[in-house]
Design a binder for these strands. Structure first.
Length: 274
DNA sequence: TCATTTTTTCCTGGTT
DNA sequence: CAACCAGGAAAAAATG
């Protein structure tokens, strides 16, 4: 790790992403594909096993928890797999430390782009994104149990040697789902995390899965931020949304503007679903 | 590297 | 008129 990650932070500000390349003569000059690795280091989904291990060490250290309390072997996986674990899985794999790890990962998945400098560059002042990390809520992806407490305080001294975590867990995750990387999941997660949703999207009919964009351009900006594409617009985002109709991830809701509805192939938005 | 799936870009034309 | 909606096409990015 840390072997000169090729100028990523500062030099990135000058990458001309062509705000409007409506010229037919500018075929993306972009000489070389040199610096093209920044989405990987920051997003947990792309971590290697080693990076997952590093993250574990770091979180343990941060919370002053003896690393020996946690069964590292239960986390012998890459970021991809790590991100597909549910809240419950974390409890299973790390006992009382599970929530802490889950919380940490959730934050990273959400705002792990750069560190704290988000929200000020391109967002309108009216949006008030002042605090990117307010506090944790519940699982981002599929809600398994809303009754679970967000973060039961990291008891300084867990000292629970008698955990029955001998639970080897050989049958790890079966389904590899690139969580949070798809647009509809991104939208869903915003809806499921009111804490982080400053009036961007709102449920129109919770049980039917109908929702409406309140700040269409702001959502597009947020999506663009996640994809490192500052030129994302609602116009383009909505095109992607319309492609979901065919796949029945979304159902068409005509008549009402900015209104969409989750379809039968959309998972994890329902309150009681699993 | 390749095949396939998803998303992005752009556009023409219609609607609210 | 501005902001959306519908999709077609094609290119680019993401994934396995």
């Amino acid at each position: 790790m840390s072997v000169t990650p090729t100028t990523t932070l500062d030099s990135q500000l000058t990458t001309t992403w062509g705000p409007n390349n409506s010229y037919p003569d500018v075929p993306m000059v972009m000489s070389g594909y040199t610096s093209r690795l920044w989405p990987h280091d920051s997003q947990p989904q792309f971590w290697s096993k080693y990076q997952v291990w590093e993250w574990l060490q770091q979180v343990m250290d941060m919370h002053q928890i003896d690393a020996s309390n946690i069964p590292f072997q239960n986390f012998d996986m890459d970021g991809h797999q790590l991100c597909s674990l549910s809240y419950q899985d974390f409890i299973r794999a790390a006992g009382s430390v599970g929530p802490i790890l889950f919380h940490s990962l959730t934050e990273l998945k959400w705002s792990g782009q750069y560190h704290v400098e988000i929200g000020q560059l391109e967002l309108k002042p009216e949006l008030d994104f002042s605090c990117p990390f307010p506090d944790v809520s519940y699982p981002p992806g599929e809600i398994y149990d809303p009754s679970i407490h967000p973060l039961p305080v990291a008891s300084p001294t867990p000292s629970s040697p008698d955990i029955k975590r001998s639970y080897s867990r050989p049958h790890q995750v079966k389904k590899h789902n690139p969580r949070g990387t798809h647009l509809w999941e991104f939208i869903r997660d915003i809806l499921l995390n009111p804490e982080r949703n400053p009036g961007l999207i709102k449920w129109e009919d919770r049980t039917e899965g109908v929702f409406r964009f309140l700040k269409s351009e702001a959502v597009a900006q947020l999506w663009g931020k996640k994809k490192n594409n500052s030129s994302m617009t609602y116009e383009k985002l909505s095109r992607a949304m319309r492609y979901y109709y065919k796949r029945e991830i979304l159902e068409r809701v005509d008549g009402r503007r900015l209104v969409y509805k989750f379809g039968r192939n959309a998972r994890g938005w329902r309150e009681s679903e699993k």
